[in-house]
Design a binder for these strands. Structure first.
Length: 933
RNA sequence: GGGCGCGUAGCUCAGUUGGUUAGAGCGUUCGAUUCACAUUCGAAAGGUCGGAGGUUCGAAUCCUCCCGCGCCCACCA
């Protein structure tokens, strides 16, 4: 072996990546050191530091992750034992300009558990990473930055320039989140990374837009939308938030009616008064048309009966403003009323249509309006402390102005041939209802159904610059038309003098101008499961042709599981189902698994203003990624919120260290052996049996998305069965190299999905050449195998259970009564425990005798079944404790007797329960006997 | 207003189709100790399962009502 080969080998044994090894080798050459000197130095170093007393996460995590990447471990590859179908997850793409927060950390931990589990099982496993361009959020960040640094607005900077600046910003900040995701240990296939705004996805978005337009599912129309006057864009219904606000509530006279509102300025052009058709107070006014005095002279008031008026509310009569109220818009559409021009403009100021109020901001217009009404004597009263919900933009908190605007919509309630005459909404409802898609936890499918049932047409155009440009071009004269709204069933609004072209690329010819708007971010992310699997180097005229040419799509779609927080079930998950079932004709995923939100110890949302946030990166630095992962998975319930605090992470750091130390002990005291593990003692039989149970249970839990339960059981076994009992016994019995090493190896595999770093690290120390990440999941014994244990095993399990009770009892007693006590274990099968004498004496540090009956001059310490522990020697009996136990036992006996004497219980309870109770009674009586001795 | 969910030890949470004396971790109290691990080991204390009814031989578990809390949807008359 040359010195260089030796050096490489040494590096490999301490988990240095080949990349790092190469760097070091280059330096060795540079400094022309003697190989031998270096090798001996490294040897001395690794000997000394190979097994530090506590696990140092920070020192090894990056190296281990690079080791996985170098080995190509994240690429999908079927191995021995793997299933026919691949296992695929599309990572919910984080914002490209974001940083790792606990929500990300949670999703990464859970998804990585599933991915690593399937990979270990040999399945062809793919986890596709990517980032989202998050149009509004990203543009806002850059706009703010430019304003702060240069005092310029986006209009000063210009569209092309702004987009360029945003691209630069995204490019520079995208790397942050990528690196942070790696630090969590996420085993993502980075070779397949995508960005929602990259060329491939952009092409996909255009193809789908055109397809939907050709199918008549996308239309452009004047409809009422949520408008943010600050962001200068529309917002989808679910991008609007509500905030309580106190505002004056005005009651004014409108002809014979009393009308209330907090927004008098919108009432300028109102003429219709709506009353409930069954409201007898107003029957006489039905159909009435009458000139009445109003703000700018007289108007012709008209009374309209409609169910939308609630007789209980206010006076029972209301005027409607279709331009600036969703509900009123619907009423107007229903009755085919003419809808006038917006009174409030896109800039939040009153429009020319508002006559004398034109140009005034809303608040000032309101003041002036009220003043004029007062002068005319039309104000009845003003309620100053009226509390109502104000709709605000979820991005910037600016009050939303509902107004009429020309936008692009997806028709969700229109039958389409591609779906055999079903609507988008119906198809999306159907695939969940018929079980093609399973939503977990189950109760979220109710929320999904409820949301789907009430789905309105989806406004997909946004008036911001960053994002997928709407692939529509216009040519010709744009004439300003008076706004006229057609009913929902009418055709797409077209203008005779304006030519429109919808396509994937710009049309041929002169004079075409592209639609300035961009698409809602969710429009592109709704295609995430399939757009990320498209072959970038292929092109095709239609989406279906392209999909047919994309091997990844054919192999990996539909994906297996979509895992995300329940807060975006409606935003994203529902839209993916809607769009994918339509555009691809497949479901996007088979299972949806939803996790909860991470909150602080008091259950509050984590926020900057409260200062209660926990930075996962800082926690990884301090406690290691494995501990952070455990703290987000164990002790949680699917779909329920997760309360996280630093002490919890520290607890799991302690556990990771425990696992490290168990391994360290085994590594230091045992030798690599080729022997097959063979159980020779009761403890061996018991442990192997318990471990078999654990393997079955953990495998089942993970396969059924019960990650918390799987983690808890592994934790319990590792710390409280393996470490507390078996390792302690192994120190006494000795000769367990084969068993300890084989258990450890399998245990590391079981833990690997949860704590990938520490397990991979220990694995390497075990002298394994292959990486753990792509090694085998243990063979899971069949349940049948457990149901019929050998007599020997059964006896061993019983012996161990009694042994543990004996040791705990003596420890407890000894703690109170000192070290001089001699104990006697009395039972007719005493030889069974006598065989374990060394274990009992060493683990309790006492002297113990064995007998088949009570020794003379002894007192009872405690008893369990046929075993009684007596103590000899100079002790003060723990009378109080015995007395307490005796009383408890007596009470118990009385309870069971009452139950058993109850005729109805005897008649109605199942035999098995009655037998059980009888056995309990017998045992309790026996115990009482022992305690009164 | 409509819907979903929660309330179990001081804190964070388990508790399978109703069936022993309701569990765990953290914290608390007491004790140990340098032999893998003080990020350790051993032990103890601590709960009328939010309240009231009902169903049942039997209820933390099922039903009804009430109280408290959270979230989603709707809502500016």
């Amino acid at each position: 072996m040359t010195g260089q080969e030796a050096t490489r080998d040494i590096f490999a044994s301490v988990m240095v990546t080949s990349r790092q090894a190469d760097e070091v080798l280059a330096k060795i050459t540079l400094y022309s050191c003697s190989n031998n000197a270096i090798i001996s130095a490294i040897n001395a170093m690794t000997e000394k530091e190979a097994l530090p007393k506590s696990y140092e996460a920070k020192a090894i995590e990056t190296t281990i992750y690079e080791g996985w990447e170098d080995a190509g471990a994240f690429l999908p590859k079927k191995r021995k034992g793997g299933k026919k179908d691949p296992f695929v997850i599309s990572l919910p793409p984080p914002n490209a300009t974001g940083t790792l927060h606990l929500g990300h950390a949670t999703m990464l931990a859970i998804q990585d558990i599933m991915v690593r589990y399937h990979r270990l099982c040999g399945d062809e496993t793919l986890w596709v990473p990517g980032t989202d361009h998050a149009a509004i959020a990203t543009q806002n960040v850059v706009e703010k930055k430019i304003w702060k640094e240069e005092g310029k607005t986006r209009h000063d900077v210009g569209r092309d320039n702004l987009l360029h600046r945003i691209d630069e910003f995204v490019a520079s900040s995208r790397e942050t989140i990528r690196l942070q995701f790696r630090r969590m240990g996420a085993s993502l296939d980075w070779s397949r990374e995508r960005f929602t705004l990259d060329e491939t996805l952009n092409r996909c978005v255009r193809l789908v837009f055109k397809m939907m337009h050709d199918d008549g599912l996308i239309y452009r129309g004047n409809r009422i939308v949520n408008w943010c006057t600050r962001c200068q864009t529309t917002l989808a219904d679910d991008e609007v938030e509500y905030k309580e606000e106190k505002a004056p509530f005005y009651h004014f006279k409108f002809g014979p009616f009393s009308i209330g509102t907090v927004r008098p300025e919108t009432k300028l052009g109102d003429k219709y008064v709506v009353v409930h058709p069954d409201d007898e107070r107003f029957t006489k006014y039905h159909g009435l048309k009458q000139m009445i005095p109003w703000i700018s002279g007289d108007v012709e008031m008209q009374v309209l009966p409609d169910e939308s008026a609630d007789p209980e509310m206010g006076s029972g009569a209301m005027t409607i403003t279709p331009q600036h109220s969703f509900a009123d818009f619907e009423t107007a559409e229903k009755h085919g009323l003419e809808i006038k021009e917006n009174i409030i403009g896109l800039d939040g100021k009153l429009t020319a249509a508002a006559g004398e109020f034109a140009g005034l901001p809303v608040k000032e217009a309101r003041k002036k309006f009220v003043k004029i009404l007062e002068a005319k004597g039309l104000i009845e009263k003003i309620d100053e402390d009226y509390v109502h919900n104000l709709s605000v933009c979820y991005r910037c908190g600016t009050p939303i102005e509902p107004l009429i605007s020309k936008q692009w919509f997806v028709a969700v309630n229109k039958p389409v041939a591609r779906l055999n005459g079903k609507t988008l909404r119906e198809r999306a409802e159907e695939v969940v209802k018929n079980g093609d898609i399973t939503i977990l936890p189950e109760n979220f499918s109710k929320i999904y159904r409820h949301w789907m049932a009430n789905l309105h047409d989806w406004c997909i155009s946004r008036q911001i610059w960053y994002g997928h440009r709407i692939p529509v071009w216009y040519r010709g004269q744009v004439k300003i038309q008076k706004l006229k709204v057609k009913t929902a069933t009418s055709k797409i609004i077209t203008k005779n003098d304006l030519e429109m072209y919808v396509g994937v690329t710009a049309p041929e010819g002169e004079g075409w101008e592209q639609d300035p708007d961009t698409l809602d971010t969710w429009f592109s992310s709704s295609m995430w499961t399939f757009s990320t699997l498209l072959n970038a180097s292929e092109e095709a005229p239609t989406l279906n042709d392209w999909l047919a040419k994309s091997d990844d799509f054919k192999r990996y779609h539909p994906t297996s599981v979509l895992e995300t927080g329940y807060d975006i079930l409606n935003f994203w998950v529902a839209r993916m189902i809607l769009m994918t079932t339509y555009a691809v004709g497949q479901i996007p995923f088979h299972t949806v698994y939803l996790h909860g939100l991470v909150r602080d110890k008091e259950g509050r949302k984590m926020s900057k203003s409260l200062g209660n946030g926990i930075d996962p990166v800082a926690m990884i630095e301090k406690y290691g990624a494995d501990a952070v992962r455990l703290s987000l998975v164990i002790g949680t319930t699917p779909g329920n919120d997760i309360r996280l605090f630093e002490e919890k992470i520290a607890t799991y750091r302690n556990f990771v260290n425990k696992l490290w130390n168990i391994s360290r002990y085994i590594l230091m005291t045992t030798e690599v052996t080729k022997e097959t593990p063979k159980a020779t003692t009761a403890a061996d039989l018991w442990l192997l049996r318990t471990f078999d149970e654990l393997k079955i249970s953990v495998d089942e839990h993970i396969a059924n998305y019960r990650f918390s339960s799987a983690g808890e059981e592994l934790y319990e076994f590792t710390w409280h069965e393996l470490a507390d009992w078996y390792v302690e016994i192994a120190k006494i019995e000795g000769g367990k190299d084969a068993i300890l090493r084989s258990i450890l190896k399998e245990l590391l595999a079981l833990w690997h999905p949860f704590t990938p770093f520490v397990t991979e690290h220990i694995w390497r120390h075990l002298g394994e050449r292959e990486l753990l990440i792509t090694n085998a999941w243990p063979n899971i014994p069949t349940k049948k195998h457990l149901e019929t244990p050998h007599t020997e095993t059964q006896e061993a399990v019983e012996t161990m259970s009694s042994l543990q009770w004996i040791i705990k009892t003596i420890r407890d007693h000894k703690q109170k009564f000192g070290n001089d006590t001699v104990y006697t274990i009395a039972t007719n099968e005493f030889s069974r425990f006598q065989e374990q004498n060394e274990i009992i004496q060493r683990l309790t540090r006492t002297n113990v005798n064995y007998a088949d009956s009570a020794p003379s001059d002894s007192v009872v310490v405690n008893s369990l079944g046929s075993i009684t522990i007596f103590c000899l020697g100079n002790v003060t009996l723990d009378k109080e404790k015995i007395e307490k136990e005796r009383e408890e036992t007596e009470t118990q006996i009385r309870q069971i007797e009452t139950r058993l004497n109850d005729k109805e219980f005897r008649a109605k309870a199942p035999q098995a329960i009655i037998l059980k109770e009888e056995t309990r009674l017998a045992k309790a009586k026996e115990r009482l006997d022992k305690l009164t001795q």
